[in-house]
Amino acid sequence: MRSPFRPDDVPDPAILDNHRPLIKSFERRGLIRRGLSLGALVMLTGCDVKRPEAVESALLAISRFNDEVQALLFDPNKLAPTYPASMILKPPKFNAYYDVMDVKPVNGATWRLELSGLIADRRPWTIQDLQALPQRTIVIKHICVEGWSYIGGWTGVPLRTFLQHVGADLRAKYVAFKTADDYPSSIDMASALHPQTLLATEYAGETLADPFGYPMRLRTAVKLGYKNPKWVTAIEVTNKYPGGYWESRGFSWFAGL
């Protein structure tokens, strides 16, 4: 089948010979990389780039406005519904921006949680250190932006307890996360201090399994699924907007439930 992209006027093949050195040097300068990223863009958009920049920036401006509205709607004392342990889905549902086969398990023995930003005590934490803090178990609904949901049971130290313990500036605006799978994420301080926001280390009473973020992941009942980074390696408290993986690709930042 004739490609719709093939130009009507095919250039004279002699041009190739005349410019061979130039083409060679061009190839060296990352033609494949560029071609691949174009291909990746096309995969993302499905063969036609049909989002004019003006429309895109208008939609993003409204999305930022909606983030403000969402923050106003957020009641820090409102608890998400909880469920009996018998309703926990075992194992939980897997999702990531890559396939499950590409999960890179983290070694819990050498894992450290690094701290930075507006935190008084920035010493790194081991998993045992985290588990020595008061723990909390919550059985809550995980709601994905895609529309699916399931009930999961999570145990860990409440992020509020942790932030208080390390002397974080609780008036700061953001709590940002870095992960082993290169999935930066961040949430607002009010949601970070919500009683149903945990640094989870267990699921359904068992150590978190590799594909679900072992040794530690964020689990908050007040945000959509994509605001729950797995394999967390660093926490930063900051007033500078940290963004996130999906947020930089168009998803709402606040993403509150």
Binding site: S3, F5, R6, G35, G39, C47
Partner: peptide, 14 residues
Amino acid sequence: SLAASFIAVSCIAH
């Protein structure tokens, strides 16, 4: 045109 062929190829792959 090279990019276009990449687009064509990745469309098929997609």
